[in-house]
């Protein structure tokens, strides 16, 4: 059933989401930077500083992820990240080809689906593969001194450092692509602005609009 929709300026990212997003972004960059100093890729700061910074930011990130996981489940936001095959080819085709010729984006943002299929898949990868690979290996890495006496600890340690470093490379690849993708909106800074203000013009069904103006009037904004 086709529903009648209308473009509306809506706060699609709540304050917590934006806080989560930006603090996570900052922490990941700090972690990547200090992590690759520890790794020996570059040594702009010394090892001791890098370990200190990396350890504290890792603890903060763990805390943030813990809260966010809790938040995602209590708010039902987790459904946003459910994988969908439907629409995926169209989005891939869009980025690879169509957008170069000014064609419109095949995905229309809605409150139910803020992300397109490709985006959803990417974030899911982030959340169930790269992220956990980093924090699981990271926590084992962090507690090295507690288990290094046990038999075979060296093999475990090598595995841990291997996965942690591999995941860190993946995280970087993700981050750079992600940042680049944010420049593909209406204007190069459109999406970034959205993530800062939280406001985006999306299609609302009449029912949604009525519900919001009744229950959450604050999230409806005037057209910009």
């Amino acid at each position: 059933m086709e529903m009648e929709t209308e473009k509306n300026a809506v706060v699609i990212y709540t304050r917590y989401e934006r806080f989560w997003h930006w603090s996570q972004a900052a922490l990941i960059f700090i972690l990547a930077f200090s992590g690759f100093v520890i790794h020996g890729t570059f040594n702009v700061v010394d090892f001791e500083t890098a370990v200190t910074v990396h350890t504290y930011s890792a603890l903060l990130l763990l805390l943030l992820w813990l809260f966010t996981t809790f938040w995602n489940f209590t708010t039902g936001n987790w459904k946003q990240f459910l994988p969908r095959i439907q629409g995926l080819p169209a989005v891939i085709r869009y980025y690879a080809w169509d957008m170069l010729f000014g064609k419109p984006h095949p995905h229309t943002k809605s409150m139910k689906r803020k992300q397109n299929a490709l985006q959803g898949l990417a974030y899911l990868t982030f959340m169930v593969i790269i992220g956990p690979a980093l924090w699981i290996s990271g926590i084992i890495y962090l507690t090295y001194d507690l288990w290094n006496v046990m038999e075979g600890s060296q093999s475990l340690f090598q595995a841990v450092t291997f996965f942690h470093t591999a995941a860190a490379f993946m995280m970087m690849a993700f981050a750079f692509i992600h940042i680049y993708m944010t420049t593909t909106g209406k204007t190069p800074f459109h999406y970034i602005k959205t993530m800062i203000t939280g406001v985006e013009s999306i299609e609302l069904t009449q029912a949604e609009k009525a519900y919001f103006s009744e229950q959450h009037p604050k999230i409806l904004r005037d057209h910009d």
């Binding site: 520890i38 790794h39 060296q154």
Partner: peptide
């Protein structure tokens, strides 16, 4: 394996 010295 010593972090900062070793790598794969």
């Amino acid at each position: 394996y010593m972090p900062g010295r070793d790598y794969f």
